[in-house]
Simulated scan of single mutants.
Amino acid sequence: MKGSLTKLAGGRLPDENQGMASEQTSTVPGQHPHEPHDTKVGQRLNWLRAGVLGANDGIVSTAGVVIGVAAATPGNLVAIVTAGLAALVAGAFSMAGGEYVSVSTQRDTERALIAKETRELAEQPQEELRELAGFYEQRGLTEDLALQVAEQLTARDALAAHAEVELGIDPEEFTSPWAAALSSFVSFTVGALIPLLMILLPVGEHRVWVAAVGVVVGLFLTGWISAALGRSPKRPAILRNVTMGVATMLATYVIGLLFGVAVS
Rank of each mutant, 00 (worst) to 15 (best):
S184I: 01
T105L: 12
D108Y: 00
A71E: 07
E123M: 09
G54D: 05
R207C: 08
L145D: 12
T73V: 09
Q18V: 09
G91S: 03
V81K: 12
R12E: 12
L132E: 02
Q24V: 15
G204E: 13
G214N: 03
M95W: 01
V41D: 14
L182F: 14
A179K: 14
L159H: 02
V69H: 05
V246H: 02
A63E: 05
R49Y: 08
V149Y: 06
I114T: 04
V89F: 15
T248H: 02
A251S: 14
N17Y: 09
Q106E: 13
S184M: 14
V81M: 14
V208S: 06
P74L: 08
P33H: 12
T62D: 03
L77M: 15
L153E: 12
S104V: 03
W178K: 12
L53E: 01
L229D: 03
S176I: 07
R107E: 10
M20S: 10
E23G: 11
G68H: 05
I238N: 03
E131A: 12
G3A: 14
G97S: 10
G191F: 01
R156K: 15
E127Y: 07
A181S: 11
E131H: 13
E16M: 12
D144E: 15
I114A: 07
P125D: 04
L5K: 04
G84L: 06
F93L: 13
P236R: 07
A163F: 02
L257G: 06
D57W: 05
R207F: 00
E16L: 12
L153M: 13
K234G: 00
D15F: 05
L200W: 05
M198N: 05
E110S: 07
S187N: 09
G98P: 06
Y253Q: 04
E120W: 01
I194A: 06
V103H: 06
A181R: 02
S232N: 11
V263T: 13
G19Y: 15
A158L: 04
L182T: 14
L132F: 07
R44I: 08
P195E: 05
V149E: 01
Y136T: 08
D157S: 13
I238Q: 05
L5C: 06
